[in-house]
Amino acid sequence: MKRFASIAFGTATALFLQGCAGWQSALDPKGPAASELAWLIWFFAGLCAVVWVLVMIALAMPLMMRPREPAEPLVLDAGADNRKLRVVMTAVGLTAVILIGLTLLSFFANRTLAAIGSDAALTIRVTGHQWWWEVRYEDATPSRILTTANEIHIPAGEPVRLLLTSTDVIHSFWVPSLSGKLDLIPGHMNVLDIKADKPGVYRGQCAEFCGAQHANMGTFIIAEPRAKFDAWWNDQLQPAAAPMSGEAKAGEDLFLNRPCVMCHKIGGTPAGGTVAPDLTHVASRQTLAAGTLTMSRGNLAAWIADPQGVKPGSHMPVVDLSGDELNAIVAYLEGLK
């Protein structure tokens, strides 16, 4: 029994330590909102643990007592019951006090969260799709409006306002190390302010069940120093890089003459589809298919050759390509930095 207990304890500890390294964890906050929430979670959890222990002690007490005298069950000790009544009333009173305290705490935490983004200078419109995120950087100058997908670059240390909506079903935007979640609802616009304290990559994923590939609808927030962020924005505004090799050129032609062009946009080419992610700078992203695969030549090929194997049910169709054609398209896309 002792051995079992030590194994169980060891396992529990190991499991716990393992999770603290997470980059998608509410307990590993990297921004002011998540920090406030992590504190709130620990406070609530601690208080609840204390209450639970007290209730368990109260439950264990009778189990330690002497068995009740085999008296008639209706013969009660009125004095004892009166004392119990006082204890019960006190416990109810304490419960009420704790609950009022927690309600106020929750209310003020909510106010703190609401204040985080009050001076946000950057507005990003995030639109949910089955199963990817369309990310549009708003700007007063129309030529500076930028559309990308799945990865959201933000300047570190600055609050950013996200406008959340959806064109199909309900999704929920959740990057736990930065903030709580908020739904993307067709016909509604929600506002979520986020802020990352330091540069880094923070993973998130859709938190509202949205169909077959709900599990593979990841997103990344990439916080960078302001200068690097501005440079990134300027790079992304450029049209797609012209194919460098003959193979890549052949790939571009194939892309433009095959069904790919119906859904995807590549800036600077006739490809202007808007129902699927913008691929103008696809190779500059870290992952493919909303966090399903890491970006690499092999994964690009795998995703194009067998999208239904990689992400069953996704709206990316299988396009019939020969091996050479596949290689050419991959060579082209790989150059779209």
């Binding site: 509410a26 998540a34 406030e36 929430l37 709130l40 979670i41 609530f44 959890a45 609840c48 209450v51 639970w52 209730v55 368990m56 609950l99 927690l102 309600t103 705490l105 929750s106 935490a109 909510n110 969260l113 929920s172 736990p176 903030s179 709580g180 979640k181 908020l182 938190a207 509202e208 069940f209």
Partner: peptide, 23 residues
Amino acid sequence: FVIGGLTGVMLASVPLDLQVHDT
């Protein structure tokens, strides 16, 4: 049940719920 009830108190808090909702 007391554990469930107490985590229910946690879920009742709007901000806290935004981290744990649908998890």
